[in-house]
Nucleic acid binder design. Structure first.
Lengths: 353, 353
DNA sequence: CTGTTAGCGCTTTCAA
DNA sequence: TTGAAAGCGCTAACAG
């Protein structure tokens, strides 16, 4: 029994043992049609015997300029929305033999740039991102194509998964109003973004006044941002005589902060204050009361994003958004929409005293 | 102005323009000492002008057999412990120019194997893992070295970050007992694992009886597991006449389920039931009452793991566990320990009626 | 200090 | 149906 395990086997190792050229081995292993069945069998046998792990990806990448890797740049891995998304993306990519590098920039624009550069450097075939900032870094020549996953419509990306939150949010806020709420505040970065716009529209259409609790757009690291949001909410909740009866938060994570502070302030939810989140992540069900939230199909969004990235990488994927996405302009832009899910954190306001 | 941007520049492109050999370019760009300052300056200038993105990683990998990538295999990205860990690992690796591929196997052993294979296939320099299963897949020859991050002591890994939870847990449970608790249940997979052992020891040392609420070891996908845990807890909490006064959960995520179900069952926490989690993830502070938990220094653990992986990849890192880790056997095994953090979900039991 | 050469493992013409 | 040869972009001897 000769010791053939000394070095990692390559197609040359196999070729030598099979008495053929490495080209034939390559062809046989790649299912190329023009190899005799006999050769193929023999070669495959030897490959297995040697424990050949498949062709070296770096060699392939060097030769074909395709790395089979995609970069995923997220805002903040700790926000459950992002981790759920990452999970789906990774899993979908893996079924196609693709590998992915997930990075979070933690709200820091400079870091986003760094990551984008690292991705380019690493030679990813495509990038999927949640944050519009790296666009600039990705606009240079020779940069991989990118797919944007966002509720904002931002031009310039090769592909996109647009999460249409407008209608769902509009509908949700309208429903809150129907329930009897008159003062509904929105906790968000500022007076922009689809989430705010939809809220504002619904309020205006009902003749009510918008009320923005803004924490600003500055790039905060997650911890800092959270502290800031908490401070703001705490302060607003201070004035017991002038409280909204409902709050719509930019995402579930912020909604949790509100919930937490409200109770700390002795307010009961939903009796004294209704709280509505966005994204409908798993945490909604882990708190009491369970959080009402505007749902988006995270799994499908993640899978669609992955498929788009795959398409951009040259893999043939016919229906990137299946089964439930709606194609946008061309096969490279898909749209998913939001629907409110009512749970226990929302209820009609206490009748005015 | 000649159009030099047609193709992605390589060291050859630069060499031609600078009138030197590509080797010199390589040396200049790598900070090799033996290049004249003049050349270096000229070469660097040209490189910037061309927008040279740095050497092609695949070429380097092919040549040096070092990919500068590490694979990170986690149990479940959605559990905040894992996402916090992933974030730190990624961030630390990135500062060394390393890239990482994060995958979660979602509690599925077969998937863990697949991922391990994918990592090998992709040619990672090292892998960091949370789950012992892939060890088998990684034991073949030519497999990258792995670092295990766990509270269990499992042999066979090239490096490890051992999270010593025994003392912290023992101490926490003892404290619960000092508070007056007599019936303390442990919610976990089964009667094994450090977390259980420490709990059991503390109970026995106090002459109290252990009480295990086990959900079993089978590999459940996260959602399924959570449902199962909820069912178990719900059932146990049914019998109002015979309730423990405190529950120690295997991790914060489970503790949240308990909290949730307890309140659903009309139990108030901590008056009727104290709840103690493990890991001290960010969510502990996002619920009411804030969750007491046995803290481990996740950030330092993540960074230590990353550094160990770096070491295994041939990067010179002298103090992988700095600043607070304790070296284990050799520089490749570090240990961090747990300390209870008391918040609002724990209190002395209601005085017996 | 600089250049020449070889080769990492693979795919892909081009011939046979 | 098979093989020979070239070359992807880079680093690392080895000469000069």
């Amino acid at each position: 029994m000769t010791d053939e395990h000394r070095e990692k086997p390559t197609i040359y190792t196999i070729a030598k043992l099979a008495g053929v050229s490495h080209t034939t081995v390559s062809r046989a292993l790649n299912g190329h049609p023009k190899v005799s069945a006999a050769q193929r069998r023999k070669i495959e046998a030897i490959a297995t015997r040697l424990g050949y792990a498949g062709p070296n990806r770096h060699a392939i990448a060097l030769r074909t300029k395709r790395s089979q890797m995609v970069g995923v740049l997220l805002m903040d891995l700790v926000n459950p929305y992002n981790s759920e998304l990452a999970r789906e993306i990774e899993s979908e990519l893996r079924t196609y033999g693709f590998t992915c590098m997930v990075s979070s920039c933690d709200g820091d624009g400079r870091e986003a740039q760094d990551i984008a550069h690292l991705f380019v450097d690493a030679g990813v075939d495509a990038v999927i991102t949640n944050v519009a900032e790296p666009l600039a870094a990705l606009e240079t020549e020779h940069a991989p194509p990118a797919v944007l996953v966002s509720d904002a419509r931002i031009e310039g990306f090769a592909a996109s998964v647009h999460i249409n939150v407008f209608e769902g949010t509009y509908q949700a806020v309208s429903h809150l109003i129907e329930m009897g709420h008159r003062r509904i505040a929105h906790l968000g970065a500022g007076a922009h973004g689809e989430r705010y716009r939809a809220y504002a529209q619904a309020m205006r259409d009902a003749g009510l006044q918008e009320e923005l609790w803004a924490y600003g757009d500055r790039a905060w690291r997650r911890e800092a941002l959270q502290e800031r949001v908490e401070a703001i909410v705490r302060e607003r909740l201070q004035d017991r005589r002038s409280l909204p009866t409902a709050i719509v938060a930019h995402d579930d994570f912020m909604a949790l902060s509100v919930l937490q502070i409200a109770r700390e302030a002795g307010l009961s939810v939903p009796q004294d204050l209704s709280i509505l989140g966005h994204d409908d992540t798993l945490v909604t069900q882990l708190v009491t009361p369970r959080l009402s939230s505007i749902s988006i199909p995270i799994k499908r969004i993640g899978r669609a994003a992955a498929r788009l990235a795959l398409r951009l990488s040259g893999v043939e994927i016919d229906h990137p958004g299946e089964p439930t996405g709606k194609p946008g302009a061309g096969l490279d832009h898909w749209e998913f929409s939001a629907v409110p899910t009512w749970r226990e954190s929302t209820a009609p306001p206490r009748p005015a005293h």
